[in-house]
């Protein structure tokens, strides 16, 4: 068991390293660099950047050196806890990301809780009452949720809220709190703004989870151990909740690891539409402007989160599934 954990841990570190290499090279892939993008932007506004000035910028950011030297420097800085400067924002990367990272996590967690709280009971109901009227209703709603692009839903909700109630539901803060420092009033303001974006972000995952839970449970409720539990005289509700639901939940533990990257990268457009101060829009913007340290850090962060999440879900699986703990973990 300990050996299993150690092996998992070493593999995790190796994976993080591979992710760092990949993320660095991927953001180098598009033609040109930040300075080219900067020059192009300046030209649009009518300012010309001289060749000398461009060279200076390149030296300043180390862009004139070979890629592997740039990578080595980047990693060396990261190991010291310094993620470099954002070229576009002209501030340390961590400072740019800081609040947004926290808000992203808050929004993700709320969306996740909503997803589970709604999808799991509905999935159980749909499986236990398969082909009932309720099952058909939820199936219809579920496919509707799956087929509707979230950003479209966001636009529709924005429009309706504004045209019917005159409310602007975009963003996570009222305008007076946007730049204010953290206080109880600001937290309360955040809580008031959270439900709508979290709901929109959770919709497709909820629809998906209902289908997965229903299918998992349908596989399990027909198994003999459920029949024998029933034959023991256990009341039906306890039969279902104690046995097949318990087994059907196991696969969810293994998907924990993908939730965070999914919410960050899957919600970019929604976040832009709803102008949420989360990571998604910053990632998009930094990729456009080839702000490599910022983009690299975010991509690396998502990678690390995935690896850590996977590691955690391995641990959870180990805890809840004796088949893995006692046989697979040997």
């Amino acid at each position: 068991m300990l050996a299993y954990l150690a092996q998992r841990f070493l593999l995790a570190i190796l994976t993080v390293w591979a992710v760092s290499v990949l993320s660095f090279f991927i953001i180098q892939l598009p033609a040109g660099d930040y300075v080219d993008a900067y020059i192009a932007l300046q030209r649009e506004t009518g300012t010309l950047v001289s060749r000398q000035e461009a060279e200076n910028l390149r030296t300043q950011y180390g862009l004139d050196q070979p890629v592997y030297v740039q990578y080595a420097k980047w990693v060396a800085l990261i190991l010291q806890g310094n993620f470099g400067m954002s070229m576009e924002w002209r501030r340390p990367v961590l400072e740019v990301i800081g609040d947004r990272l926290a808000l992203t996590i808050v929004v993700s967690v709320v969306a996740l809780l909503f997803t589970w709280a709604v999808a799991l009971p509905i999935g159980i109901y749909s499986a236990v009452r398969q082909y009932s009227f309720g099952d058909y209703i939820f199936t219809f709603v579920g496919f509707f949720g799956l087929a509707t692009p979230s950003f479209l839903l966001a636009l529709v909700v924005l429009y309706l809220a504004f045209s019917l109630f005159g409310a602007n539901i975009g963003g996570l803060f009222s305008s007076e709190f946007k730049l204010a420092s953290w206080s109880l009033a600001k937290v309360w303001d955040l809580l008031k703004h959270l439900p709508v974006p979290a709901l929109i972000l959770a919709l497709s995952a909820t629809a998906q989870l209902i289908r997965v839970m229903r299918a998992n449970l349908l596989d399990e409720v027909r198994k003999p151990y459920v029949v024998t539990a029933r034959a023991r005289g256990l009341p039906e509700r306890r039969v279902i909740l104690k046995y097949p639901v318990r087994v059907a939940l196991n696969p969810f533990a293994s998907t924990l690891g993908y939730l965070f990257p999914h919410i960050v990268s899957g919600s970019i457009i929604v976040s832009v539409v709803l102008s949420l101060p989360t990571m998604g829009p910053v990632l998009l913007r930094s990729l456009q402007s080839q702000d490599m340290f910022l983009a690299g850090t975010i991509v690396l962060l998502i990678g690390v989160m995935t690896v850590v999440g996977t590691f955690i879900s391995d641990l959870v699986l180990l805890l809840i599934d004796p088949r893995i703990r006692l046989v697979g973990g040997r």
Partner: peptide, 16 residues
């Protein structure tokens, strides 16, 4: 009481 035909799957895989 009932004893079932498949001892492999008649007991829950996640309960003792």
């Amino acid at each position: 009481a009932l004893v079932f035909q498949e001892p492999m799957t008649s007991l829950s895989p996640v309960h003792t």
